[in-house]
Nucleic acid binder design. Sequence first.
DNA 1: AAGCAACACAACCGCATTTGG
DNA 2: GCCAAATGCGGTTGTGTTGCT
Length: 379
Amino acid sequence: MGRAPCCDKANVKKGPWSPEEDATLKAYIEKHGTGGNWITLPQKIGLRRCGKSCRLRWLNYLRPNIKHGGFSEEEDNIICSLYMSIGSRWSVIAAQLPGRTDNDIKNYWNTRLKKKLLGKQRKQQEAQQSRRAAIFKQEMIKRSENNANFINISAGFFNQNPYNWPELPVVPVANYQTHDLQLMQDDASIKTMLINLGGRFSHDSDTSTTSFQYPVDISSTSSSDHQFYQSSIDVLASTSAANSNNYSQFPSTNFDASNGTGGSSSPTIFHGLDDQNNNLQADHLHQLTELEVYDNSFAHQHQQLGGFYYQASEETLNNGSSAGTSTASAESEISWEDINSLVYSTQMVADYETCCQQAVVVPQDQHSFLAEATYFGLK
DNA sequence: AAGCAACACAACCGCATTTGG
DNA sequence: GCCAAATGCGGTTGTGTTGCT
């Protein structure tokens, strides 16, 4: 038995609102207010609409001082940093942007902002990848001259295009779909992009987490939101002492691949674009960000090679280690921490030198070589 | 000019939370 | 404390518009 409907669906009009309906609703509310009961309101004023529909129409469209479209850079930044901090809590985000509705912000994020960020991210990645590919090729050729074992393979590799490498063994991963990985990587890409844009995490500087400042005024939020913010701050305080890593947006730096559990799973509360702090250790952040971009792509390529390199345990995927900030939405089921765990749980090569070392031991370690080559777009 | 695809935005739906009796 | 109704919220869908072939 399902929930009783809020209105008589058969006698309720659906679809776009007419100007007449708008005028009726607006006139009534401006004169009498909502009367504290949206359900009975449409009957009172003779509208064949669901009360919920009336409420939504008023809040998202008819209410005074509503702004539509034309989001500024500053608003973009606020949305991005808040999305990083609290996820898709659109009503909270909307509370920080006067005149904006949660629906508007949600639509803006889903249709434009997300793509805008991913576009920038991918451009950066492509440029970076081609730079690395050139170095990689050069190094391979150089080393192949000194390595008899390598010559045949490298010759085949560089001269045949495409080259059909043998199928790699596939290790099935429970409850896991390729498109999920793509979605997660998109989210991870956005996260990286936001870091590149100048955002920072609460551990970036010598600022103590106990004096953690939210980038926004949360005084206008509801009591439950205050609790939510406070609990985030509490988590920060409780974990900061044990966490010696200043850049905890990469919590799985301490990942223990042997048992599939994370090290210190730090919270990922994100600071806004604070002028004073924006430049703090920017270079260091940038380096780490580049590394993360590299690692994300690398793990993804590994997975695309048939899951052979995928080593995260099912437990890691299912449990996650989020500090109570997840929501019930499908999008949030996989948190940033999960993504980091996923990425770092793969046995990866984190620097160029190691890359080359692994690559030149082909054929003993052919899979590593293939993964590298695929990553560099050479296959 | 017609057909199609992509996009933007309004509106709906269902679930969670809050409120009041 | 319990329950039902109301409200709030976020994900998804539907529809109109725009641009491209």
